[in-house]
């Protein structure tokens, strides 16, 4: 031990010296610095916590703002959609009105044209009759009784004889609406006659008249879904079928 220089006195001196240094450093250096480190750590943590809270608040505000904006956008698009729908509706209404007007105008025009044609046809009816009689006289070579000729013509064109509709049988037709098609416009008397007869024999309540030169002569009567073809064209057609 002596050779190594270890000596109890010096050892004790060193130990006491360490003790003094330990206490002094602990009191003067470690305590304040550790306290400072602790305080600093706390401050930093507090700062981080504050920052976190602030960030949260900001995030909330941003979310709120986003919500408000989204609501506003939804409302705006709703308004736009409504306005568009209303405008479309208005446009549709206008177009419908215009179409209706146009249709009405066309109908009126058509009715006028129809009336005009009927009037012209009524005008030429007499001439046609005269021409037919003249042609028949030329063909037959002898003059028929003027009165009888006229009644024949009446029958030919109007399909009525002795105040009755020729083609109409008894209780054949049932229906509420009757339509009468003639080759030339009927006179008012004839119309009245046909109407009376039809009303009496069928269950029809209303009778309408139409002119169609294509049937050549006679009458085509439609009651409900049934048709009686008493036209000359129909008879000629039948004849053609039979001869074939």
């Amino acid at each position: 031990m002596e050779g190594l220089g270890i000596n109890l006195g010096y050892l004790l001196v060193q130990i006491f010296n360490f003790g003094i240094m330990f206490v002094v450093l602990k009191e003067w250096a470690y305590k304040p610095i550790l306290k400072m480190l602790e305080d600093r750590r706390e401050t930093i943590n507090k700062g981080l916590e504050d920052a976190r809270v602030a960030a949260e608040a900001r995030a909330n505000a941003e979310k709120e703002a986003e919500k408000i904006i989204a609501e506003a956008q939804a409302k705006a698009s709703e308004i736009v959609r409504e306005a568009t729908a209303r405008a479309e509706q208005a446009a549709k209404d206008v177009r419908a009105a215009a179409e209706a007007e146009a249709a009405k105008a066309r109908e009126t025009a058509l009715a006028e044209v129809e009336a005009e044609r009927n009037r012209i046809l009524a005008d030429i009816r007499g001439q046609v009759a005269s021409l037919a009689i003249a042609a028949a006289q030329k063909l037959v070579g002898e003059a028929l009784d003027e009165k009888r000729q006229h009644s024949l013509l009446q029958e030919f064109f109007a399909g009525v004889q002795d105040g009755r509709v020729v083609v109409l049988g008894e209780d054949e037709l049932k229906g509420s609406e009757a339509e009468v098609v003639s080759a030339l416009p009927l006179t008012d008397e004839e119309k009245e006659m046909v109407e009376k007869d039809l009303l009496a024999k069928t269950g029809a309540e209303t009778v309408s008249f139409r002119v169609d030169p294509a049937i050549l002569g006679g009458l085509v009567i439609r009651v409900g879904d049934q048709v009686i073809d008493g036209s000359v064209a129909g008879q000629l057609n039948e004849l053609r079928q039979a001869l074939r």
């Binding site: 220089g5 001196v13 060193q14 360490f18």
Partner: peptide, 12 residues
């Protein structure tokens, strides 16, 4: 380089 010092520290 004094063994007293190092032994003192080691003992402590």
């Amino acid at each position: 380089t004094d063994l007293n010092f190092t032994f003192a520290l080691a003992l402590i």
